[in-house]
């Protein structure tokens, strides 16, 4: 395995700086966002590297649970900030957290106990990366779906209400919107699975191969991860959309867009 030096990383960073300088002429704000994001990547990944190093040295369920909790909290915040029209109060955050917790954590537990079958099952070397990938993808799916849901409900309020006026149920009034919303939540993972191996080599597998693992072993892990992600992101999106739709209407089946932030 070839070790990367600080110089190697700096050379790669030059590419981002060059992109920022070029795009600054077209859109200065975007260049700044790009640099901040790149900086965050470097700092956050360095920190998590140190945390994982400590964690792997003493594998305790308490520490794994605590780190998982932090990851979940940050993912919940990320779901909220990615929405243009979010639920007012803590609702967006709560819906995101509950959906991600129920889907990602269940799928991660299933994978660790049934599929991987390590002893102990919470061995951080497996648990944390697995949960991280699941949470990241579930978060993406939920954020995309909820953004689509709230935005479409806002834009099409007249059409939704036109159906309610005619005595249609909330499910009927939202039927076509709900399809689009599920689609936007699931399309990233469907696309990723469809193109995997032909157009793109997935990141996890590439990382394992670069780090010296046998390709066939890396591929097996990647297939498992893809399926787990599909399950986690899919069920997470289903749950989040279900909870959000319930919040969008009240007990008299009125469309309550006043529950979204203006």
């Amino acid at each position: 395995m070839i070790h990367l030096t600080t110089l190697d990383l700096s050379l790669a960073a030059l590419l981002v700086v060059a992109l920022a300088m070029t795009s600054a002429r077209i859109y200065p704000g975007l260049a700044k966002q790009l640099l901040v994001a790149a900086l965050r990547t470097a700092i956050q990944l360095t920190l998590i590297g140190l945390v994982l190093k400590t964690l792997f040295a003493n594998s305790s369920l308490l520490w794994v649970a605590m780190l998982s909790g932090v990851m979940l909290a940050v993912a919940g915040r990320e779901v909220v900030v990615r929405q243009q029209r979010r639920f007012a109060g803590g609702w967006g955050y709560t819906i995101g957290m509950v959906s991600m917790f129920t889907s990602s954590f269940t799928v991660a537990l299933f994978a660790l106990i049934v599929v991987v079958g390590n002893e102990p099952w919470y061995q951080p070397q497996y648990a944390i990366p697995l949960l991280g990938m699941l949470l990241g993808n579930t978060m993406n799916g939920i954020a995309l779906a909820l953004d689509r849901l709230t935005q479409t409900a806002w834009d099409q309020r007249d059409t939704i209400e036109a159906r309610l006026m005619l005595g249609h149920s909330t499910a009927q009034a939202l039927s076509s919107i709900r399809q689009q919303v599920f689609r936007s939540g699931l399309i990233p993972i469907i696309n990723a699975m469809a193109a995997a191996g032909i157009v793109s080599l997935p990141g996890m597998m590439t990382g394992q191969i670069l780090a010296g693992a046998a390709p066939v072993e890396a591929v097996k892990y990647q297939i498992m991860i893809m399926f787990l992600i599909a399950g986690g992101a899919g069920f997470g999106t289903l749950a989040a959309v279900h909870l959000s739709v319930r919040r969008l209407f009240d007990e008299r089946e009125r469309l309550r867009l006043d529950r979204l932030q203006r």
Partner: peptide, 19 residues
Amino acid sequence: TPMAWRSQVGYLPAESRWW
């Protein structure tokens, strides 16, 4: 139920919507 109420108390808004 809200559905039954709105079927029997029919509101026609000034601008119609079609889905």
